Structure formats: C-alpha cells, structure tokens
Simulated assay, not measured.
Amino acid sequence: MEILLKIFDNIMILSDAMSFYILIGLLIAGVLKQLIPDDFISSQLGANKISSVIKATIFGIPMPVCSCSVIPLAKSLQKEGASKGAVQSFLIATPITGADSIMATYSFFGWIFTIYRVVTAIIIAIVTGIFQNYVDKQDEKKEKAITFSVDKPSEVSDENTCETSCCSGDTHAKNSRFSIKESFNYAFNVLFKDIYVGLFIGLIIGGIFTSLLPKELLQPLFEYQFLTYIAILVISLPLYVCATASLPIAAAFLLSGMSSGAVFVFLSAGPATNSVTMGVVASMFGEKSLFIYLGVISVLSIFFGYVFDNFFYNLEVFDIHSHANEFSLLDTVSTVTMFTLMLYTFLKPKHDHSHEH
C-alpha cells in the first residue's frame, strides 16, 4: 500500500509540473490551427529540392499536431506531390516542435534544453530530407541512364508526372473567419484526443519508474556513455510515445542517474521513430527510404546527445523531489483540469465525428 501511495504521489508531482504548460500549449495549437490554411503546406512542397525540405521543416514547426496525427498529414502531403525528403522532414520536425511539446519540455527541463531540443530537431529533419532527396536524385540518374540505353524515355516521363500531379488529392478550403469556439474544440477535443492515452500511460510509467527503478541496477550501464546512448536508442526506436507523453518517462530516466544527453536521445528519437511510423515510411517510400530515415535520426540523435553531455553538463533540470512542495494552486487546478479532460474524453461516445485533421 505504501508503494502504491508513493507511485501516486510521484504521478501527481509529474502532472503538476507539466499540466499547466500542456493546457497552454494545446490552446496555442488550437489558435494556430485556425490561422494556418489546410492546403498551405502541401502546395509548397512539391519540388525535389533543398528548399522544399527546409520549407517542410519550417512549416511543420508551428503545426498543431502530435506524433499520432502527423501520419495522416504526411500521407496527404505525399498524395499532393511532396517529395520524399520533404515528407520525411515534416514527419520528424512537426511533433517535436509543436506548441504543447515545447511548453511541456520547458516545464521539466527549462529553456536551454527546450531550445536545444527544438533546434536539433530542425537540423535532424533538414539533414534527413536533404540526404533522402540526394539519394533519390542519384537513383533517378541511374534509371535515366538505363532507360536511355533501352530507348524507353516515355516510361520515365509518365512516372514522374504521376508523382507530381496526377496522384494529387483534393484539398479543403479553410473558413476565413477566426473562431474561438473552433480553436477550443480543436485544442481540447480533437488534438487532446490524440495524446491523452499516451500522456496518461506516460505519467503512470514515469511515476512507477521514479518510485521503483533502482539506481544501483542501472548505474553500471550509465558509466559507459555510448553504451547508454545505444541502449536508449534501441528502446526508443520502436516505442510509440508522443513528444509530450514521453517527457514523464524521460524525467524518470534522468532521476535514475541517466545523463541529460541520453535523455535527449530518448526525446529525439522516440517521437520521430516508432513502429507505426516505420511501417508508414516503408509503405510510402520503400525499405531503402526507411533505412535512411532511421539511420540519419539515430546517428544525429547520438551525436547531439554527446554534444549536450559534454558542453551542457552543468545544466540543472527538473528534480521531482526538490520541486514536490513548490507547486502553486494554479498547478493543482491545471492538473485537475487535465485529468477531468482525460476522463471526459475517455467516456465520450466513440461515434463522435469531430476528429478531423
């Protein structure tokens, strides 16, 4: 019974630390959803160029979607003619740099870690997209050479036309009038519905890890820096965690003695790579593209984790024990509100058709 109470207390502490920032982040996301036209991004990303990759990353930064809802958006971009590199950049940058994820990251780790996470996510997204497009261009040159040798140029032309135009899907115009009601609806109905299960599970796992995970068991692993990075990478690649929901788990890892750089690897690779996303990337672009996608993310996540450990080692991050008695009434009210929303969303009839992206 004592152990259960300890787990519950730690779950509440984690919730108090992030609930206010999650609610504010969701509200910002709802406003952005009203301001950004639905077809604005897809209309800018068709070219197989570096500019399309950079645009995809920049446009993905303010997009109010999480790791769950970014997948159908990525499919839509592909149908509307976006290049492979642009879609992959969008898949990486969008969930990590969302307003709710940024605010929640700050609540645990402060602005330095938050800014570092966002900037490196942008770099990883751009590098992945550029490398993917470079490989595609090399493959196209080989295909053209082969096609020219057998004197069948028309087949290549038809295929490229399909990729850029005839495979395009329909777009929907956005209502030009700003609606506060729709902003709240998207934030606390549609978007929250995407993340609440993962967030709830993340809080439970974080509370359990914080309460029960023995530091002595993990300490030998943490003594070997790169071994820790690789172990965390192996764990995070298939794990399905949203950028926001992964934060309580990351905080528990940190309190168990893991380095900030290893925590960064988990928060960088986890939201961008999971079993669902892997399957989608493979089905959309093929196994070679999946290998590029996972390879670049893995290498750069470890590299940036190493950089963080060696240049930001004095950074102070959220400490669940020292902050236990520092939360305000606002934090408590935010936690109650967040769990009330979770319960309401769970009990709401499943036939609700308001979930639109």
Rank of each mutant, 00 (worst) to 15 (best):
E2I: 07
K6Y: 07
N10M: 08
I13M: 04
M18I: 14
F20P: 00
Y21M: 11
G25K: 07
A29R: 02
G30C: 08
F40D: 06
I41F: 03
S42R: 01
Q44N: 12
G46D: 00
S51A: 12
S52H: 01
V53N: 12
I58V: 15
C66Y: 02
V70G: 08
V70K: 02
I71A: 08
K75E: 05
S76M: 02
Q78E: 01
G81S: 01
G81L: 00
A82S: 13
S83R: 04
G85D: 03
A86D: 00
Q88H: 01
S89D: 01
A93H: 06
I96T: 10
S101F: 01
A104C: 10
A104W: 02
F108L: 09
F108V: 03
I115R: 01
V119K: 03
A121N: 06
I124T: 12
D136H: 08
K137N: 13
Q138Y: 08
A145C: 05
D151Q: 13
D151M: 15
K152I: 13
E155M: 06
N160I: 11
T161V: 12
T161Y: 14
E163M: 03
S165Q: 08
H172W: 02
H172M: 12
R177D: 14
K181T: 12
N185D: 14
N185L: 11
Y186E: 02
F188P: 05
N189E: 12
L191W: 00
L191K: 15
K193T: 11
D194K: 13
V197C: 08
V197P: 02
L199A: 04
F200Y: 04
I201Q: 04
I204F: 12
T210H: 08
T210R: 04
S211N: 05
L212G: 00
L213C: 06
K215V: 11
L221H: 10
E223S: 15
Y224F: 14
T228H: 09
A231H: 08
P238D: 04
A245N: 02
A250T: 06
A250G: 11
A251Y: 04
A251M: 09
A252C: 05
G261S: 09
V263C: 06
A269L: 09
T273L: 13
T273K: 00
T277H: 00
A282Q: 13
G286R: 01
E287Q: 13
L290I: 06
V296E: 08
V299E: 01
V299W: 03
S301E: 04
D309Y: 09
N310W: 07
Y313W: 12
F318T: 05
S322M: 11
A324P: 02
N325T: 13
S328W: 08
S328Q: 11
V333R: 07
S334Y: 09
M338P: 02
T340D: 03
H351P: 00
H351V: 11
